[in-house]
C-alpha cells in the first residue's frame, strides 16, 4: 500500500498515525507540508528515520524545493517528481491519503 501524507509532523498527527498504521513493507509518500517530515534536524526526524527500518519513505521534490528545504533532506528518503508520484500510485495495489 502507498500512504500519502500532506501534513507537517510538527503541527498535526497525520505522519504519526500513518507510521503507526502502515504495515511493514508499505511505502509512504510525503507531499505538501509533509515534506518537512523528510528533513533532518527536526523534532520529528528521529521517528521518521526509525520508521525507515520497515517502510520506504519518499518525498515530493517540487514541494521540498518550493519550501526551501531541498538541501535538508534526510538520508534514506527517496525523492520523486510528479511523474514518480504517478509511478508509485500505479505500482502499489492501493493507496490512502492521510488528510
Amino acid at each position: 500500500m502507498l500512504h500519502i501524507v500532506n501534513k507537517s509532523p510538527l503541527e498535526r498527527n497525520a505522519v504519526d498515525s500513518c507510521l503507526r498504521l502502515a504495515t511493514k513493507g508499505s511505502a509512504v509518500l510525503l507531499i505538501e507540508d509533509a515534506v518537512y517530515a523528510a528533513t533532518k534536524g527536526t523534532a520529528a526526524s528521529a521517528k521518521v528515520q526509525a520508521a525507515m527500518a520497515n517502510l520506504k519513505i519518499y518525498a515530493l521534490a517540487p514541494d521540498m524545493e518550493a519550501r526551501g528545504v531541498a538541501g535538508r533532506v534526510m538520508e534514506g528518503v527517496n525523492l520523486v517528481d510528479y511523474s514518480g508520484f504517478v509511478d508509485l500510485v500505479a505500482e502499489h495495489k492501493n493507496c490512502q491519503s492521510w488528510l
Binding site: M1, R20, L21, A22, T23, S26, K93, N94, C95, Q96, S97, W98, L99
Partner: peptide, 16 residues
C-alpha cells in the same frame, strides 16, 4: 493498531 493496519492494507479503495 496492527489489526487496523491489516484491514486498511487489504482494501481496494480507501476514501479518507
Amino acid at each position: 493498531s496492527a489489526a487496523m493496519a491489516n484491514l486498511m492494507a487489504e482494501q481496494d479503495v480507501v476514501i479518507s
